[in-house]
């Protein structure tokens, strides 16, 4: 693993607010959801950043902002030295070829009326790429472990794992440098997941692209990522090299999250100490002052309510945002 390599992508102070209009009785109210609240990270060439955190913590919004599928409220998304937030529509179109996304649901992300071959070739057509598309499709199918004659079939003739492979082939069509994988294996059976995860690793080794791998499953992220960012309520609370974060979690939330993950080992499960967090994640409409985790943190003090902790490099190498790190 080359930790010295340069950043392909640098996200700086990314903020994304969503406005929600609600009709409550006679009053029309406007509420702001802070989906992503000042997030910065790098993704290095040929490496994988794992993005973990509970539902609603802002992972998908980060991914979509990076690809400029949604307009960030503020902040910079620097891809190969260019700030994408400042590009014109035409300029963006060029850069978009290099960045792709694969979604969780292999069933929803393919057009049921299109052959799998046409689905895979679609980005080539849209981007006006010349050359023999059929040949390229065959090559892509081979790359993801499917057969060339699968191109003529329709999505319903494929299993979930195969459909996800089709989605990956489609994402690879334009030789992207960055792929955002948003829960790419969550909908698959464990026995099938393993093959798709291997495919991601193999493709990265062969083609050298970078991934942002978004997942709920911390064990899968541990397997595939080089670096990990842990999100909570729109913030990155811990960021660093995977082993540092998993072996010596510094932020109390990371520690609680890791301890909540059930491990497939009854002896370990029955003997290990578990941190039980109380309650659920608060609403991002009115996040807690100071540290956003304080309403569930067993270590919270007045300081945590008064002052927002900043990401600080810890002795074990990673950064964490906590006044009283572990």
């Amino acid at each position: 693993m080359n930790t010295q390599s340069e950043a392909l992508l640098s996200v700086r102070n990314l903020v994304k607010n969503f406005e929600m209009r609600a009709n409550s009785g006679l009053r029309k109210t406007k509420r702001i959801v802070q989906a992503v609240a000042d997030v910065s990270f790098d993704v290095k060439v040929g490496q994988t950043l794992g993005l973990v955190g509970e539902s609603g913590s802002g992972k998908t919004t980060v991914g979509r902002s990076v690809l400029q599928l949604i307009q960030p409220t503020s902040g910079e998304v620097i891809f190969e030295g260019q700030d994408l937030t400042k590009l014109s529509f035409e300029q963006l179109r060029e850069v978009r070829r290099q960045m792709q996304i694969v979604f969780q649901d292999p069933f929803a992300s393919l057009d049921p009326k299109m052959t799998v071959g046409s689905s895979i070739a679609e980005p080539l057509v849209v981007q006006g790429v010349s050359g023999n598309h059929q040949e390229k499709v065959a090559e892509l199918l081979d790359l993801v472990g499917l057969a060339a004659d699968h191109a003529k079939r329709f999505p319903h003739e494929f299993s979930g794992g195969q459909r996800q492979r089709v989605g990956i082939a489609r994402a690879l069509a334009l030789d992207p440098k960055l792929i955002v994988l948003d829960e790419p294996v969550s909908a698959l059976d464990v026995s099938i997941q393993a093959g798709v995860v291997n495919l991601f690793s193999d493709l990265q080794k062969r083609l050298g692209m970078s991934y942002i791998f978004i997942a709920h499953d911390l064990s899968v992220v541990r397997h595939i990522a080089d670096h990990v960012a842990v999100m909570y309520l729109g913030k990155i609370v811990e960021l660093g090299e995977k082993n540092a974060v998993y072996r010596n979690p510094s932020h109390p939330y990371t520690k609680a999250l890791l301890s909540a993950v059930p491990l497939p080992n009854p002896k370990v499960e029955r003997s290990r100490h578990r941190i039980m967090l109380e309650g659920d994640v608060p609403s991002p409409v009115n996040p807690p002052t100071g540290c956003r985790f304080r309403t569930r943190c067993w270590k919270a003090t007045d300081l945590c309510a008064a002052e927002e902790p900043q990401l600080i490099v810890r002795p074990t190498g990673q950064q964490s945002a906590c006044h009283f790190p572990e």
């Binding site: 299993s159 979930g160 794992g161 195969q162 059976d189 464990v190 026995s191 099938i192 997941q193 393993a194 093959g195 995860v197 291997n198 690793s201 064990s219 899968v220 541990r222 397997h223 497939p264």
Partner: peptide
């Protein structure tokens, strides 16, 4: 056995999927 060994665990390089599908 296939199910248990398809799970990721610390220190392994490659996962072991079960080939095929149900």
């Amino acid at each position: 056995r296939g199910l248990l060994s398809s799970l990721p665990h610390e220190g392994i390089e490659r996962l072991n999927p079960i080939a095929g599908f149900p």
